[in-house]
Computed example of a mutant assay.
Amino acid sequence: MAIGLGALEYLAEMGLLTPSTRMLDVGTQNLYNAAPERITAFLRKFGRSLEPLQIEEAAGRISRASIVRPGERTAFLADLLDLTEIDYVGYDVCPAPRTDIFDLNNDHIPRDRRGKFDLVLNFGTTEHVVNQLNAFEVIHDALRLGGVVMHQLPSVGYVDHGYFNYNPLLLNDLAQINRYEVVDRFYTAAGSGGFHSDGLDVRDPDHMNTAHSAGAPQTLPNFNVNYVLRKTVAERFRIGLELRTTHATLAEQVAKNYRDAPQRSAASLIKRKLKFWHG
């Protein structure tokens, strides 16, 4: 999980990152490939009373650490933000600077931090988490009213990364049912991968017993989907049901679960179903 300075510069230009921002990093990010001159520019804007020589030293040190070298510590986003007034905390299952140990599969936002964050970053984190419901509910609960989350998630390609690739339909529906304002949305290129990394071949659907029966490119382009969403109502997190790609009529006993979705939280729906299943 990593972030580049381009994302921080984008957020600053959008007015979503300021010296007084309270930021939650869902999955503590490494800082990759940060050029010294761009770190210098960032610290001149956000740094706290740093002398020019201090900025120059920090820019060189952090830039060098932002390049992955086997056996050496890679820079964290916290290393940069420690030199600013930005109030930063990361949630992760692995110890790291300015990080609280937090399991997105099971943990919930502590009461004293609910609705406290101006900005939440989900940069390539939730695709590694099986419990998607809890992960997105954590993000929702962390945001203050008017706060913004930026998701940067694997979408196209990525045949060998994480558990999930994200369709914009999911993020569009989450925005609609939770009444988030869509501030921005776009794709970004993210290198390439290939079909054969996990030993899988590609087969013709009419000849599935024949290995390698369909041609396939050696590499595939990877693209991240980026969504910037603003929380506009102080209500519980809710889920929807994706029906635009179905070719059948939804059963009435299921439809009634979603007919009053604006009045039902995701947690209450799941808990009700668990009670039904287990008596």
Rank of each mutant, 00 (worst) to 15 (best):
H212C: 12
A175F: 07
Y166W: 10
D160N: 07
Y158L: 01
F136H: 12
T246M: 09
T249S: 15
N165M: 07
T246K: 05
G191N: 04
L143I: 08
A216G: 10
S155N: 09
A267K: 09
H196F: 10
V130W: 09
L145M: 12
A189H: 02
G191S: 10
R236M: 04
A251I: 09
E242N: 11
N172I: 10
N224L: 01
P217T: 08
V228A: 03
A234W: 03
A190M: 10
D204K: 05
Y163E: 09
A211Q: 15
Y187N: 03
A234I: 02
Y227I: 02
M150K: 04
N222H: 07
G162P: 00
R230Q: 15
L200G: 03
V233T: 14
F223C: 01
R238I: 10
R185K: 15
A216H: 15
H140L: 08
L241S: 13
F195H: 12
D173H: 14
V233R: 15
F223R: 02
R144P: 00
E235G: 08
P221G: 04
V182Y: 15
N226M: 09
L170G: 08
V233I: 13
Q132T: 14
I177T: 15
V202E: 06
D184N: 13
N222Y: 03
F164Q: 05
F136G: 01
R230S: 14
T249Q: 15
P221Y: 03
D141T: 08
R259A: 14
H212V: 11
L269A: 10
H212A: 15
A266I: 10
A211G: 13
S265L: 03
S268R: 06
P217G: 11
P217A: 11
N226S: 12
Q132Y: 07
L153G: 07
F186K: 03
Y187T: 01
I270E: 06
S265R: 00
Y158A: 00
P168C: 04
D204G: 11
L243K: 06
L133D: 08
L170N: 13
D141Y: 01
D206P: 07
D204Q: 07
V156L: 05
H196P: 01
K256R: 15
N178P: 03
L170R: 09
G162K: 01
V159I: 05
Q132V: 13
F195M: 10
G191I: 09
F237R: 15
A266K: 02
Q253T: 14
Y163I: 08
A248H: 04
F186I: 02
A190C: 14
I177K: 13
A261H: 08
Q152T: 01
Q218V: 13
E252R: 12
L133E: 07
D201T: 14
S213M: 12
T219C: 14
F186W: 05
P217M: 05
L133A: 11
H207I: 06
G146N: 07
V148R: 00
Q253C: 12
V233M: 14
V202D: 06
F136E: 04
N222S: 06
F195T: 03
Y258D: 06
V159L: 04
V149T: 08
R238P: 08
T219G: 13
A142S: 10
